[in-house]
Design a protein around this nucleic acid. Structure first.
Length: 113
DNA sequence: CTCCTGACATCCG
DNA sequence: ACGGATGCCAGGA
């Protein structure tokens, strides 16, 4: 599972582990995988994950807490709505109290790994 | 088969 | 401090 050779597979795994009402950034996931510079790969992985229901890409935002990938959610504010439904306050694709809702895989998953 | 792009982040100048 | 260039992997044309 987590021993997959694919970089994407690891990204999917982390995304699935994101609890509801929580958000994380591409850089956090990338850094957790050991490739902070591969943050764009994380986004690209999400692109593939669009067809995967197990990957809540709407919980993954950029370092600014901005829902950059909302364009991939049908071109609507669906991404923002999903987050609001989970209890995350989002105004104009910008997450309020980003650090408060921020879920760090390195920090959270580090306990079990 | 080869080149470029892709939902970002970080370093160098 | 700000701007431009680089980096990672994989898929699409």
């Amino acid at each position: 599972m987590s021993n997959n050779s694919g970089f994407f597979e690891r990204v999917y795994e982390v995304c699935r582990l994101i609890p509801e009402g929580r958000v994380t950034s591409y850089g956090a996931i990338a850094k957790y995988l050991g490739a902070a510079k591969s943050a764009r790969m994380v986004g690209w992985a999400m692109n593939s994950s669009k067809k995967l229901e197990d990957v809540p890409a709407h919980r993954v935002v950029n370092r600014k807490g901005l829902l950059t990938g909302k364009s991939h959610f049908g071109g609507s504010n669906a991404m923002q709505q999903l987050l609001e439904e989970e209890g995350v306050e989002v105004i104009e694709l910008q997450i309020l109290n980003f650090e408060k809702y921020f879920w760090d895989p390195m920090k959270e998953l580090s306990r079990d790994l």
